[in-house]
């Protein structure tokens, strides 16, 4: 496991010789056509510290066992395909560098929890998207402007954080409430509701606040901060949920008033 070899050049970062390590990955496998229950399987792969867990999974799939199945696409943390549990924490495989893990120990990789397991590291994402669709994740506005709607920099800043969401489900599937109660909307749906509730151009915030005031809405949040820790985009998820709670109690989002710098006509 800790066997060390000095190799001329890394595949990743340009620079001097970088040590390659043999890393052990223990992956929770499940083939629905063969297995009754998931089981753990070990793989040894030669990795550079700057490689990502996704590279390790690729190496296994491409060189050792082609049947290892996982989702991935962009490989740099923007598409949200490869959320998985790595050493017990929800992370994107493509954003988790080997050097940031303790490689004297095996790396445990399994599918995210709380969604139906389909095969190896793949889960059924439909329930997740179902909650997302339920909070009406689209701008509701009745006016038909000729040009853009006006929005001040401050008004835009209020919901900036929650526009970063890539719907990877790392937050929702790290939430202990969601694990035991799949009916709970979950952090991701609330984050996406937040993105519209606090958008000054939107007119549907009352509807969304009502939806989230539901039995399975924001009040189920126990403020454990798992979601904030899991978010690969660094969204302050728990804070967003708290802001939605406050908005429900207030009865409105309490948006900042416009602070536009008005330029005189003809200026």
């Amino acid at each position: 496991m800790s066997e060390v070899a000095v190799v001329e050049e890394s595949a990743g970062v340009p620079g001097g010789p970088i040590q390659a390590f043999t890393v052990t990955l223990i992956i929770r496998r499940f083939d629905p056509e063969v297995d009754a229950e998931p089981h753990w399987q070990d793989f040894d792969v030669e990795m550079y510290p700057t490689d990502r867990v996704l590279d390790a999974l690729h190496k296994i799939k491409w060189e050792q066992d082609g049947s290892l199945t996982f989702r991935r696409s962009c490989a740099h943390g923007i598409c949200g395909s490869d959320a998985m549990r790595i050493n017990g924490r929800n992370r994107l495989a493509c954003k988790t560098l080997i050097k940031d893990l303790d490689i004297s120990q095996p790396i445990y990789v399994e599918a995210i929890k709380g969604l139906p397991l389909e095969k190896d590291l793949i889960v059924d994402m439909e329930p997740f998207f179902e909650s997302y669709r339920a909070i009406q994740p689209f701008l509701i506005a009745s006016d038909k402007p000729d040009k853009e709607r006006i929005q001040s920099v401050a008004q835009r800043a209020v919901f900036d954080d929650t526009t970063k969401c890539i719907l990877c489900a790392a937050c929702t599937s790290s939430c202990p409430v969601f694990w035991t109660d799949g009916q709970y909307f979950g952090p991701a749906a609330i984050v996406n509701a937040h993105r519209f509730i606090f958008d000054s151009r939107d007119e549907g915030s009352q509807v969304r606040l009502d939806i989230l005031n539901d039995k399975e809405g924001v009040w189920r949040c126990r403020t454990t901060f798992n979601c904030s820790e899991a978010c690969p985009r660094g969204i302050e998820v728990t804070k967003a949920i708290s802001e939605v709670k406050a908005a429900i109690l207030r009865g409105n989002p309490g948006l900042p008033s416009s602070d536009l710098v008005l330029t005189p006509v003809g200026a």
């Binding site: 669709r133 339920a134 009406q136 939806i211 005031n213 539901d214 039995k215 009040w219 709670k245």
Partner: peptide
């Protein structure tokens, strides 16, 4: 198709235990 506009079942009729409980 997305859920039709949500009808807030708890509104006005039953007490929203979750909300008041939280408060």
């Amino acid at each position: 198709a997305p859920r039709t506009p949500h009808t807030p079942v708890t509104k006005n009729r039953r007490v929203n235990w979750e909300k008041w409980g939280w408060l």
